[in-house]
Design a protein around this nucleic acid. Sequence first.
DNA 1: TTATTATATAGGATTAATTCTTAATTGCAA
DNA 2: TTGCAATTAAGAATTAATCCTATATAATAA
Lengths: 145, 145
Amino acid sequence: MNTQRAAVEILREKCVEHGLKLTPQRIAIYEAICHTTDHPSADKIFKKIKGKFPSMSFDTVNRTLLTFSAIGLLKVVEGHGDPKRFDPNLKQHHHFRCIRCNTIIDVYSRYYDSVKIPQDIQSRFTVLGKRVVLEGICKQCRKKS
Amino acid sequence: MNTQRAAVEILREKCVEHGLKLTPQRIAIYEAICHTTDHPSADKIFKKIKGKFPSMSFDTVNRTLLTFSAIGLLKVVEGHGDPKRFDPNLKQHHHFRCIRCNTIIDVYSRYYDSVKIPQDIQSRFTVLGKRVVLEGICKQCRKKS
DNA sequence: TTATTATATAGGATTAATTCTTAATTGCAA
DNA sequence: TTGCAATTAAGAATTAATCCTATATAATAA
């Protein structure tokens, strides 16, 4: 698949750039998370990979995800005290979180992208990223009640 | 102190509203968190209270904070997989998070308050809250490097 | 290629965070 | 007051995250 090849190439570049080895584990983990849009936890990725890669340890998955986060291959999304959740989507986007089922859904909006950093905030901090975070009830949970 | 009395009254109202008992533990915990602006974890609140209330258990602090969160007395702030952090500030506000020291600083901005919920998002979700979340380097950490 | 070496991994141990269990206590309504 | 349902303390159990170390391996250079 095209997107898979692209993923390995992106990974390879980043590894070379940071002097990291391109191991089968790293490839499997990066490909696994690239196929998600639900911001999975380390444990979810671990379980997903277990079938194809029975010898992999949870520690490797967790450590690798943190490494990826450190080199900017993915981000830890803002959560609410539950296990860390990872997001391979580096494009500017926003999040909606359901307070019932705790799902985090990507929101794309030019309008939100265009929200500016006011001058007084710029002088207080070095702002590297911004995001609009919405919360409420998702469609599925709305149906249930 | 005036703000302290106010805190107890707010707590009492909410407790009556939800059929909860007004216990000394709840009062102590609510007053403690009302005096913070640094979005402390349950553990920090626990340590803060320990001096005045040596018999209180960590579990009580944690459970009580979650109860407060459930009845809307405070909120669990968006974090990054670390222990839950609580925010008694229910006024519309925004957050800046330092990626170095993990401090979360309140940001007040009329401009950010005025950011709207687009129509297509309203139709997908029942949006109950919104916040602009900034991240970057805070002043203190900028000095260090 | 092959040898070398620094890095990475597996798997179990450890630590930390959170939640559960239970017996005792205590607000508060009657 | 009294009775009872809600709440608490304390420790156990569970779950999440990190650390340790012996082994394996990717990448480099001969």
